[in-house]
Design a protein around this nucleic acid. Sequence first.
DNA 1: GATGAATGAGTATTCATTCAT
DNA 2: AATGAATGAATACTCATTCAT
Lengths: 187, 187, 187, 187
Amino acid sequence: VFIKIILLDKRTEILEIATRLFAERGYENTPLSLICESAGVSKGLISHHFKSKDGLLREIFNQTTQLIIKINSKPEIELPPHKHLEKVLKSFFAQLEKDRMLLQFNLNMIAQPSTRAILLDLIQERSIFILDNTISIFDRIDPKNSLILSHMFIAELDGIALSYLGVYKDFPLKKIKSHIIKKYTKR
Amino acid sequence: VFIKIILLDKRTEILEIATRLFAERGYENTPLSLICESAGVSKGLISHHFKSKDGLLREIFNQTTQLIIKINSKPEIELPPHKHLEKVLKSFFAQLEKDRMLLQFNLNMIAQPSTRAILLDLIQERSIFILDNTISIFDRIDPKNSLILSHMFIAELDGIALSYLGVYKDFPLKKIKSHIIKKYTKR
Amino acid sequence: VFIKIILLDKRTEILEIATRLFAERGYENTPLSLICESAGVSKGLISHHFKSKDGLLREIFNQTTQLIIKINSKPEIELPPHKHLEKVLKSFFAQLEKDRMLLQFNLNMIAQPSTRAILLDLIQERSIFILDNTISIFDRIDPKNSLILSHMFIAELDGIALSYLGVYKDFPLKKIKSHIIKKYTKR
Amino acid sequence: VFIKIILLDKRTEILEIATRLFAERGYENTPLSLICESAGVSKGLISHHFKSKDGLLREIFNQTTQLIIKINSKPEIELPPHKHLEKVLKSFFAQLEKDRMLLQFNLNMIAQPSTRAILLDLIQERSIFILDNTISIFDRIDPKNSLILSHMFIAELDGIALSYLGVYKDFPLKKIKSHIIKKYTKR
DNA sequence: GATGAATGAGTATTCATTCAT
DNA sequence: AATGAATGAATACTCATTCAT
């Protein structure tokens, strides 16, 4: 019975496998046939559940957004802002080290014009949430400059992800981590 | 004679138009037929000049690298390091404002796994040059931390490009520019 | 009880909606999914009631044939033949004006090779009935030429339907109606 | 050299074979793969020459229209109108007997809603030409009723084609031919 | 250098049908 | 009687590449 339940949830399986393949190979370079083969399902099933390849991509992106929103909506206001930043940074670097896949996926989809067009509204929604969330932290540190500081904070993390995942083989991730944590938690 | 020169330089025209289209639409989403149509040349001519679509992409990427190397190889060592950084930053923001296209192109090609695979060696070559060049500046400011500082410097600029070009419609580019120039030139 | 009766008669609803869609869009261009959606039933139900898409088409066509047979089997022999023709013509033009749908459906299915193949025996059955019925009228007018006259009569009506429904936007239906009724009822 | 020239004209070959297949099987029931196989060409060549399946259909239909226009534009005004009608009728029946294919094709395309939609403007163009041409004949017989008589004339021929090609196996074509020629040429 | 007809593998999508519930 | 997940064959179309001229 237990096995049956797991095997039956083909919809979830498609989502997970497609996320990985899109991250590894890019959206346009991942044929649906490969997803189907990897997931052990038929081509028709993707149409049935997600309508189209674009629909599948949007579903994946949106699920991740909902997860991000859920995680960051926990009331951690009690934490002092520098502690809060430290927590955000640590979770970012942890993901970079252990689960490159999801960050790679996001980077791909946002940098690529064709996928950006498909996800336009969803990217807006997510990025605005992230900006607002970051601003709410910096508001408690330096309210006058919180917008600029937040944008810089986000840009730094994105840039680190790009350098680490896509450019520099020998990127000194650990040292960068210490450096940036020290920078944002001192005082 | 004049007309002849212009007409003969279809190779350059193909390169320029392809760069723009790859930047705007992404590599995989830009068929050669569209490039041919836009440039007013036949399909055979691209094969003739660049062998293949991959060859065309590599040619474009490499030309830009050579330009970067040429520009940055001028002996500006006489400049004090903070002035040198200021110059680099100003030229970066100028390009971001006036010629989004080329930065968009680079971002696309590096973030996308399939194009990264095609350009692997060329990306290595270019990024190592940029890193070395940046290190040579920070060596004169803080030799002990020059590697980390250089990586952070590059990551910040990449992240700003990503935020500005791909994510935040209302990205406060001017304010970020002042902020970051002040940060790297103070003292 | 009343609700039950209405809800239970999904079979009839499917038949009606499918007839309309086949007439408007053609058989091959009407997916079962569209019929299901329009009728608010599941895909499985069509299989259950009609076995297959072909079965559904045959059922519709056959129902109409049975209706034609039923209507024309009323003993109207008492009517003088010219009056009988007038009645047939008036009913034909009435349908053309008020219920294009069913004539459109018949025209489609008969003119299209693929549907003709599916309905071959049913088309034979119906067209022979119509021919025999028409002959029985002309037998009382001009027995020697009744076959030719009947074929001409049928061809004229079919041709009018084709011109009116499929070709000429400004087809002068009223005038054609007067013209043809006068032609067949004079003397 | 001669063989080479014939073999090279693959565009014409595609048009001829597609016409036959569309006539025999209907448009929607004729996959491009079958046309390619029959014509011995690759799938890509149809895209190259006709852009799409719809484009191929439109090209075929339009070519036939141009042929009809060309044939009927010869100045035969010298012929007395009844002789002209006789000529039109004889050519119609000759085509019906010897070259069913093209009439079948036209009937299919016009009766089928999906192909009618694709060909809408071309059908208009052709049918108006045919109507005008017919009216110009009847104008010399009975100017007051020429519109009605022309519509009836066209409808009769269409109806005969429908009955003969699609409905009645034992359609008495020869007798109908004599009957209708007598009817339109008497006096 | 330059053209464009021709290829053929590849891709997303459609859709009738089946079947467990 | 009724549902809808799942299938898989079929289909139109795309596109980089080749090659004769």
